[in-house]
Simulated assay, not measured.
Amino acid sequence: MITDKHFLNAVNNTNVDFTGWDFSIITRTGRMDSDMLSWSYGSEAFRLIQDSNAALDMGTGGGEFLSLLQPFPHVMYATEGYKPNVPIAKKRLEPLGVKVVERTEDENLPFKDDTFDLILNQHESFCASEVHRILSTQGTFFTQQVGGLDCSRINECIGAPINKEFSNWNLKKAIEELKQSSFNVISCKEEFPVQRFYDIGALVFYLKAIPWQVPNFDVETYIEGLYNIHGIIQSKGFFDVKQHRFIIRAEANK
């Protein structure tokens, strides 16, 4: 039985409400940080949206990121599949002229053929053929994805299996799917930057916020593994894991 009061208080006092896609409670306070990627998704997305006439942001979360890309084209839509985020996104984005649509199926997006000349997608699932359908001829699909090996050391250290649904998701697989759906890949890159946690409470908050990392995560089930990580943090001052990111810019060939 674990009796370390500091550890138990840290892992049991992480029930802060998580809304939109905001990790500031652990990033702005220096409890978690990440290495920089060699690219800037935001800078490229901003440039692309300024040259667009009709754009879609897939998986907008609470609209935090998209709201920073103004001014928007005349036609600007956003989708969000996580129900609690939908009203948050609408409140933030609709006053800016963005139409927010709740999306439930990647294979059945609620848009007509050839609607958009630009589709942005940051860390959101997608069906390549459906994205191709709603893009105009030579329309751009620009996405940054989280690969299937993302933060797998967390799973290893707490004794949780890696999520098999995503484990094979990588740059090569994504490119294959896009090419099969008549996309021309213009540019792509894949990297594994380090993500660092400075206290065990920050890690528990992270796991509660992104349930796909360890499905059905709860502290009691993984208490021994979490305590082992706590020991690593106490010894080294931090716990490092490797993220898995890749970026693709592709053009619809029609």
Rank of each mutant, 00 (worst) to 15 (best):
V98R: 02
A54F: 01
N108I: 05
G97W: 00
L66I: 01
E64A: 04
S40I: 15
V100Q: 07
E107K: 12
G30K: 06
M76F: 02
L37R: 12
F65A: 15
R103S: 15
A45C: 15
V16S: 06
Q50W: 10
E80C: 12
T137C: 08
F72H: 05
F142D: 09
D33Q: 10
A10G: 00
T140D: 09
F18G: 11
S67Q: 02
N15P: 03
F18N: 09
F46N: 10
Y82W: 15
N9T: 11
A55F: 08
Q144T: 08
Q122T: 10
Q50K: 11
L68T: 10
T137N: 10
S43A: 12
K83A: 14
Y82D: 03
H132D: 00
N13R: 01
Y41C: 06
D51R: 14
Q145H: 01
F72I: 01
L135M: 03
A54S: 14
Y82V: 15
Q138W: 03
Q50I: 03
L68E: 14
A54W: 00
R47D: 14
F72V: 03
D35W: 04
N12C: 04
H6L: 12
Y82K: 13
V131T: 11
L66D: 05
G97T: 00
T140R: 09
I25M: 09
K90L: 07
A128G: 07
G61V: 08
R47Q: 11
E44I: 15
S136N: 12
D33I: 06
F126H: 15
V146R: 02
R133S: 13
Q50D: 04
H132R: 11
V101P: 06
L69M: 15
Q50Y: 07
E124K: 07
P95K: 01
K5A: 15
F142K: 04
E94F: 00
E130L: 07
L68A: 05
A45Q: 15
P84V: 12
F65T: 07
A128Y: 02
L120Y: 07
L8W: 00
Q50T: 08
D117P: 08
V101G: 02
A45T: 13
S43T: 09
Q144R: 13
I25S: 13
S38I: 12
V146G: 12
G42A: 11
G139A: 06
R31S: 04
I134W: 13
F7G: 05
T27L: 04
A45W: 09
N12R: 07
A89I: 01
K5E: 12
F111H: 11
N85A: 10
E94A: 02
N15A: 02
A128K: 08
M36L: 14
M58P: 07
R133D: 11
S129H: 10
F46C: 06
F18Q: 04
G61C: 08
E64W: 01
I88M: 02
L48A: 10
N108R: 06
N121Y: 09
A128V: 06
T14N: 02
I119E: 02
I25W: 03
L93F: 05
V11T: 00
F116W: 04
Q70A: 14
S24M: 00
F72C: 04
L37S: 14
L69T: 06
M32A: 13
D22L: 00
